[in-house]
């Protein structure tokens, strides 16, 4: 691990109009492990996640202050298109394009012009689908619609789509909340494999999931980051009263 963290946030505030959704959050995120954001609904964990690849730019009333760096570079000065290629995102509800499985994965590389020719594109598609653990299931039907897959397969397709543009960070916004337990288990295994290559941040409302997949956990409450530390410490020996109350099920 290098000295500069992959991503670091310093004193980040997010406002929706006059309402403050995130209050003074600072955090470092590194490659090689999974960082989980937990907290009750409306605590701002998804909002903060969407700040990390400037998806909040698409909401006209949202305003982000403070500094977020990727490899030491301020993302607010980066081109959002390039930033989002480097910081990929997987959403709560699987959202494949209503196109073929192949096209879903090939779209990102194509618009960024990273594949020279069909053979190279085929290779990227196969590699991405393999890493997302979907290749064996779909290799014979790449031209079928991505929307015809099952929910869990669709989500893995979305992960393959994110991987295809070679991101450095992958943000996952409650990626399993629309999936059944078996599909969830597959995604969790996948996250565990992917963490070697990418810095992964996962927002989850399930404390069990955070405990299973993450090495670091940040607990958010009412727009503030209450506690951040190793997952094992945070769940067994929380430093803050509010964290303890939340993980023991007192509220949330």
């Amino acid at each position: 691990m290098t000295d500069t963290p992959k991503m670091s946030a310093r004193n980040v505030d997010v406002y929706y109009g006059a309402k403050q959704a995130i209050d003074d959050v600072s955090i470092d995120i590194d490659t090689g492990h999974v960082t989980a954001f937990i907290g009750p609904s409306g605590c701002g964990k998804s909002t903060f996640l969407r700040s990390l690849n400037r998806m909040n730019d698409t909401i006209p009333i949202a305003r982000v202050t403070g500094e977020i760096d990727l490899d030491g570079e301020d993302i607010s000065r980066m081109d959002p298109v390039q930033l989002r290629a480097r910081v990929g995102m997987v959403f709560q509800k699987p959202n494949p394009f209503p196109k073929s499985i192949y096209e879903n994965v090939a779209y990102g590389p194509r618009i960024h012009g990273v594949a020279a020719g069909k053979a190279e594109m085929d290779e990227i598609v196969e590699k991405s689908l393999s890493r997302a653990g979907l290749w064996e299931e779909v290799r014979d039907r790449l031209s079928d619609a991505g929307t015809a897959l099952s929910g869990g397969q669709q989500q893995r397709l979305c992960i393959a789509r994110a991987i295809a543009v070679s991101p450095e960070v992958i943000l996952m916004d409650e990626p399993c909340s629309a999936l059944d337990p078996i599909a969830t288990a597959r995604i969790e295994e996948l996250i565990d494999e992917l963490k070697e290559r990418y810095a992964i941040v996962i927002v989850t409302h399930s404390m069990q999931q955070a405990a299973r997949v993450s090495q670091k956990t940040a607990f958010f409450h009412l727009g503030k980051m209450v506690e951040y530390g190793d997952t094992s410490d945070l769940f067994t020996n929380p430093q803050q009263e509010r964290t303890k109350d939340y993980i023991t099920g007192r509220y949330g």
């Binding site: 998806m55 298109v81 390039q82 989002r84 990929g88 959403f91 618009i111 789509r161 994110a162 543009v165």
Partner: peptide, 27 residues
């Protein structure tokens, strides 16, 4: 056209105009 499609395109690094012409407009 569902907003999730726009999110999907933007999140792989499509520009707003690409998002519209590649995904929103065809739908």
């Amino acid at each position: 056209v569902p907003p999730s499609i726009r999110d999907a395109a933007l999140a792989v690094g499509a520009s707003p105009v690409q998002t519209v012409f590649h995904h929103v407009l065809p739908l």
